[in-house]
Amino acid sequence: MTRILIRAALILAAVALAGTAEAKGCLKGAVVGGIAGHMAGHGVVGAAAGCAIERHEANKKDKTIRQGDRDGSAR
């Protein structure tokens, strides 16, 4: 239990120090990935993977929106 609390504190500290511009999608992915990874015995790896996947999806969405704006079409 103590290890979980220490990890949670470290993760919260890392999130607090991270820039908000890069966190888009990461927090939700980290939570979901961390829970799924915890069930499989690899919570930290799951959180990192969840963050990376959600960040990738957010980038894809932003790119699609930017391309739509350049083409002159409405969102």
Rank of each mutant, 00 (worst) to 15 (best):
A52I: 04
A36I: 14
R7Q: 05
I4L: 13
V32Q: 06
A21I: 02
I35H: 08
V32E: 00
V44L: 13
I53F: 09
H38E: 08
T64R: 12
R70A: 12
E57V: 15
A18G: 03
G43R: 01
L5R: 13
R70T: 11
I4M: 12
T64K: 12
I4F: 12
A47P: 04
T2L: 10
E22H: 08
G37E: 10
A14D: 00
R70D: 03
T2N: 04
A48L: 15
G25D: 04
R7C: 09
T20C: 01
A36M: 14
A18H: 07
A21Q: 08
A47S: 15
G43D: 03
G33V: 06
D71H: 04
D62A: 15
M1A: 05
A48F: 13
E22S: 15
D69E: 12
A47Y: 07
K63Q: 11
D62N: 14
V32L: 15
R3Q: 06
D71A: 07
A52E: 05
V44N: 06
S73G: 06
T2I: 11
A13K: 01
I11T: 11
A30V: 07
V44I: 11
A47V: 07
L27W: 11
I65W: 03
R75F: 10
A13T: 06
E22P: 02
R66K: 15
H42P: 01
A58Q: 14
A74H: 11
A74Q: 04
E54L: 15
A48P: 05
K24E: 01
A16E: 04
G34F: 04
H38V: 04
G33R: 06
L10P: 07
D71Y: 05
V45M: 10
G37W: 14
L10E: 03
I11S: 08
T64P: 00
C51E: 02
G25K: 05
L27K: 04
T20H: 09
N59V: 07
A52F: 09
M1R: 10
G41F: 02
A40F: 12
E54R: 11
K24P: 02
G41V: 09
C26P: 00
V32R: 08
E57R: 15
G68Q: 14
I4P: 01
L12H: 14
G41M: 04
R7D: 01
A16H: 09
V32Y: 06
R3L: 07
G37A: 11
R70P: 02
G33S: 09
A13F: 03
I53D: 00
I65E: 02
M39A: 14
A23M: 14
K60Y: 09
V32G: 03
K28P: 02
N59M: 12
A58L: 09
L17A: 13
K60L: 15
K63C: 00
A18E: 03
